[in-house]
Amino acid sequence: MKSGRTPLARGPRAAPGPTGSVRIIGGRWRNTRLPVPDLPGLRPSSDRVRETLFNWLMPKLAGARVLDAFAGSGALGLEAVSRGAAHAVLLERDAGLAAALRGAVERLGAATQARVVCVDALAWLADAPAEPFDIVFLDPPFAAGLWDAALRALPGHLAVDAWVYVESPVEHAPAVPPHWLPHREGRTRDVRYALYRVPGGQGAATLRGDSHRPDSA
């Protein structure tokens, strides 16, 4: 659900006019609409994909720290908080989109639970102090091809037994580290979406078992 330009936005500007919206599907903000500005490459995940993803994640959401690395409309990160995550960091390099996200956080009364950072996600992952996240959403702009760089930069920001969601074009499965365990995978006509467990330390409880079973959306 990401904007497509790769450079950092230069200076503040007004948020683009919304031409659509995406809704938060479940939790305390259920059916709240988030604006989707008309920007190249801004591609919100469908309701069906997000419903499937959050069904997979539901047992791990309570109290989780979440990173939405390419936030766009914020639907993934804010949906997680709506459903019980303790805190979400939303990274968005476009200044107008970041301003819209901050407005959404303010309207939801979520300033203590959601932090919007206007920054290039890869730069933040490379330079920010290690901050362990339990759940990470990687849904970069498809045209930019950022999966490999993001996956290389991510390990220092993962908590013990973290979960990582990766969304990509249906014909492209990004190469995740070999020790990551595939948990669930689904496809639509245009999108492949997959959830991985990153094992370590105490040994994670599973989400409905550890089998790798494709799902359709």
Rank of each mutant, 00 (worst) to 15 (best):
A217S: 03
D38W: 07
P44V: 00
R30C: 07
L90Q: 00
E131W: 13
A114W: 13
I24L: 15
P16V: 03
L195V: 02
L34A: 01
E185M: 13
S21T: 09
S3K: 01
A159S: 13
S168M: 05
L76N: 03
R30E: 02
S3W: 14
R187M: 08
G186N: 00
A205W: 11
S168A: 15
H212E: 00
P18L: 10
G77W: 09
A143K: 12
K60N: 06
A104G: 05
R13S: 02
P169C: 02
R10D: 01
A62R: 08
V160L: 09
L67P: 13
G27F: 14
P169F: 05
S82G: 02
A95H: 14
D68C: 08
K2Y: 06
S82Q: 08
T112W: 11
F70S: 03
R213T: 08
L146I: 10
D161I: 14
L91A: 13
G77N: 06
R5D: 00
D148F: 10
W124G: 00
P132K: 01
A130S: 14
G203A: 05
A217N: 04
F142W: 15
V116Q: 13
G74Y: 12
T19M: 04
V49D: 00
T206H: 05
A99R: 15
G41E: 03
D215A: 15
R13G: 06
T206I: 06
P214K: 02
A69Y: 13
A88R: 12
E167R: 05
V164Y: 14
R13K: 06
V116H: 10
A205H: 08
P18Q: 01
R152G: 00
W56K: 04
E171D: 15
R102M: 05
L125D: 03
S168I: 12
V176W: 14
L42G: 00
V191P: 11
V89F: 12
P12C: 09
D210M: 09
A15R: 11
P177G: 01
D148T: 15
P18G: 00
A153T: 06
L158R: 04
T32F: 09
H212T: 00
P35K: 01
P182C: 07
S3M: 12
K60S: 15
V136P: 07
A130C: 12
R10Q: 15
G145S: 03
V166G: 04
V36R: 09
D190C: 05
V22R: 10
V22N: 04
H87P: 04
D134M: 10
R48N: 03
W124L: 04
A71E: 03
A14L: 12
V119L: 09
E131Q: 06
A15D: 01
L146R: 10
R28P: 05
S21I: 01
A175N: 04
R152P: 03
D127N: 07
A62D: 10
A126M: 05
P140I: 02
A80F: 12
D68F: 13
G26Q: 02
A130T: 01
P7S: 07
A75P: 06
D68E: 04
W147P: 04
H87I: 04
V136D: 00
L53H: 06
S21P: 06
P12K: 07
A14K: 14
A71D: 02
T206E: 05
L8T: 06
D127F: 03
V198D: 05
A194S: 15
M58E: 13
L91C: 09
G84A: 08
E79D: 01
